[in-house]
């Protein structure tokens, strides 16, 4: 247990030590999106009845920040440790693969939540924010952070070079998050893209998280929630199998 807590603490400290870059920078980015898109689009787009575009955008940006940063935390920590060689310090001790997984996963969730909360507080400077069901949104944030944290562990283990990880980030994570309905309701899309969006698990996370704010969503939670939980469990299972086998970590 102490081994797990130490690894978790170390992972949290790791990003906190450079919070300028790991918390403040993504917060500024999200606020820039808010300012630019709300300026460009707020008079042209109406998404949900009774919900202004800026208000609609806020939960999308918060959740996007949670997801991207959860992914960034576990993946960058692992790839850095692998490339600099200090991964050996966590491979030599008697830390089980389950503890290893949970420590990296929870630290990723923490980073996601810290950045998400920062973005939320930042947006409150620009627009009043009301959250109808905060606990529901929090549950979605934790699950979403967990899912992307697990994906980050897989990416970090699989990548051998920084550019491989960057490819993962640019060709998978970025398109999935940008095309997940952060900036629009998928019902505004042509039928083809609407159908494609339904295969994007990140869409369900954004959608459910937003439901916690407005009580309105693109698809029913009875569909969205199981999808999110299912994806989280599936990715976690993959992580655990890779770690148990020592894939690319223990040769």
């Amino acid at each position: 247990m102490i081994g797990f807590l130490t690894l978790f603490n170390k992972e949290v400290l790791r990003f906190w030590r450079v919070s300028f870059q790991t918390v403040l920078a993504p917060m500024i980015t999200a606020l820039l999106y808010l300012m630019i898109f709300s300026h460009a689009l707020s008079h042209h787009v109406s998404v949900y009845p009774g919900v202004g575009y800026i208000a609609f955008l806020v939960p999308g940006l918060v959740m996007m920040s949670v997801l991207q940063n959860a992914f960034a935390n576990s993946s960058s920590s692992l790839i850095q440790s692998k490339i600099t060689g200090n991964i050996v310090f966590v491979l030599l001790p008697p830390i089980s693969y389950v503890q290893f997984f949970l420590a990296y996963l929870l630290a990723a969730v923490v980073r996601g939540l810290v950045v998400g909360a920062s973005v939320l507080i930042g947006t409150m400077l620009f627009t009043p924010v009301h959250i109808a069901m905060p606990l529901l949104s929090l549950a979605y944030a934790i699950l979403g952070g967990g899912m992307l944290g697990a994906l980050g562990i897989i990416a970090g283990i699989w990548s051998e070079k920084f550019d491989q990880l960057a490819a993962f980030q640019n060709f998978l994570i970025m398109p999935l998050t940008f095309l997940s309905g952060v900036f629009y309701s998928i019902h505004s899309l042509p039928p083809f893209w609407l159908d494609i969006s339904r295969f994007n698990p990140i869409f369900y996370m954004i959608d459910g998280f937003r439901y916690g704010f407005f009580g309105q969503s693109d698809v029913s939670l009875s569909v969205g929630f199981p999808v999110v939980v299912g994806c989280f469990l599936a990715l976690s299972a993959i992580c655990l199998i890779l770690l148990q086998r020592g894939y690319k970590l223990r040769y």
Binding site: M1, I2, G3, L5, T6, L7, N9, K10, L13, R14, R17, V18, S81, T84, G85, N86, V88, F89, V90, L92, P93, P94, I95
Partner: peptide, 27 residues
């Protein structure tokens, strides 16, 4: 084990490194 490669974690001081390593071993 003292590994051959000169690895270190640039986020921490010497004492922190050793405290963390102790924690990994449950101490």
């Amino acid at each position: 084990v003292v590994p051959q490669e000169l690895a270190y974690d640039p986020f921490f001081t010497v004492r922190e490194t050793l405290r963390i390593q102790s924690g990994y071993f449950g101490l």
